[in-house]
Measured scan of single mutants.
Amino acid sequence: RTAFSSEQLARLKREFNENRYLTERRRQQLSSELGLNEAQIKIWFQNKRA
């Protein structure tokens, strides 16, 4: 289980509010910017949509 920092969570929530689905390219960008792997971001979005 991933423990996200408050900064990472704030960024993910802001991104989710703008778009509930990420393109592969956007997921790669977020992964690089947040220091998370793409799978972690993908799962976070899946869980948030559920």
Rank of each mutant, 00 (worst) to 15 (best):
L9C: 12
Q8H: 04
I43P: 00
L22I: 09
Q29H: 07
N17T: 08
S32K: 14
Q46R: 11
A3Q: 13
L12K: 00
R26L: 07
S5M: 03
L36E: 01
A39Q: 13
R11S: 06
W44D: 01
T2S: 11
A39R: 10
R11L: 06
G35D: 07
S31F: 03
F45E: 02
T23P: 07
Q29E: 12
K13N: 15
Q28K: 14
N37E: 14
A39L: 13
E38I: 08
K42N: 13
E24R: 14
S31N: 01
Q28E: 09
L30A: 00
S5A: 03
F4K: 03
F45I: 02
A10F: 04
L9H: 05
L36N: 00
E7L: 07
S5H: 04
K48P: 04
S5F: 03
W44Q: 01
E15S: 04
R14N: 08
F4I: 12
N47I: 12
L22Y: 01
N19R: 06
R20W: 09
E15N: 01
N37T: 15
N37Y: 06
R1E: 15
E7A: 07
L12F: 01
Q29C: 06
G35C: 06
E24T: 13
N17K: 13
S32I: 14
Q8L: 04
A50N: 12
K42I: 14
E24F: 07
L34Q: 01
K48F: 09
E33W: 03
S6C: 15
W44S: 01
E38D: 06
L12G: 00
A50W: 09
F16M: 02
F16K: 01
E18R: 09
G35F: 04
A3N: 11
R14V: 11
T23Q: 04
T23Y: 02
Q28S: 07
S6I: 09
N17V: 08
R25M: 12
A10R: 07
Q40H: 08
K48V: 08
Q46A: 11
Q8F: 02
Q29K: 09
W44C: 03
Y21K: 05
W44H: 02
L36A: 04
R27A: 15
S6E: 14
L34Y: 02
R26V: 07
I41P: 00
Q8C: 05
R1P: 14
R49F: 09
N47T: 10
E15D: 02
A50S: 08
S32N: 10
A50D: 09
A10V: 07
E38S: 07
R27S: 15
T2L: 13
L9G: 02
L22K: 01
L12N: 00
I43S: 10
R25S: 13
A39F: 12
S5V: 03
S6Y: 10
T2P: 14
L36P: 00
R20H: 11
E38L: 05
K42L: 14
E24W: 06
R25Y: 11
Q29N: 07
E33A: 05
L36T: 03
Q8V: 09
L22S: 02
Q40Y: 08
R27G: 10
L36D: 00
A3K: 13
T23W: 04
R14I: 10
W44F: 08
I43G: 09
N37I: 06
L34M: 07
R26W: 03
E7G: 05
A3Y: 14
R49Q: 10
R27Y: 11
Y21V: 11
E38R: 03
K42R: 11
L36I: 10
G35N: 08
R26K: 11
R11H: 05
R14Y: 10
Y21I: 10
A50R: 14
S6N: 10
S5W: 04
K42S: 14
E18Y: 06
S31D: 00
R20Y: 06
L34K: 01
R25F: 10
S31I: 05
Q28D: 05
S6F: 10
Q8A: 06
F4N: 02
L12D: 00
I41N: 00
R25H: 12
E7R: 04
Y21G: 04
A50H: 10
E15R: 02
Q8W: 02
I41W: 02
E33K: 03
Y21F: 12
R14D: 11
L34D: 00
R14T: 11
Q28N: 07
F16E: 01
N37H: 12
W44E: 01
